[in-house]
Amino acid sequence: MKEILTPCPHLHRRWRSVLLFLLWSIAPWSHAQTPVFEIEIREHLFFPAELVIPANQKVKLIIYNRDDTPEEFESYELNREKVIVGNSQGVVFIGPLKPGEYPFFGEFNMKTALGKIIAE
């Protein structure tokens, strides 16, 4: 890519700005002080199926998968998508959310693995 783009000076500048933008967005956020919530997957069900979290605050959500099979935690409303291997756990950050209900589901077992996050 670099070799090919060398003839055009614009791209250099552009890439640098994109890189700076990325760095800028990584730097100031620290992972401390975020409340942690947990959800369990058992027999392709979410426990709890309804999780209440504080609104307007970033939250760390740990999803434990107690089944032997992998599951994909997915939510259109939260814009999240993560595969959690069997007997393992996964972390996603969500929020800060406006008060409301945000449904999520397990993509590999859409009939039973359903739940929602309620931000209050």
Binding site: R42, E43, L45, F46, F47, A49, K111, T112, L114
Partner: peptide
């Protein structure tokens, strides 16, 4: 309605 109990839906 759909409910979870006894480990099933």
């Amino acid at each position: 309605s759909d409910r979870n109990f006894n480990g099933y839906r």
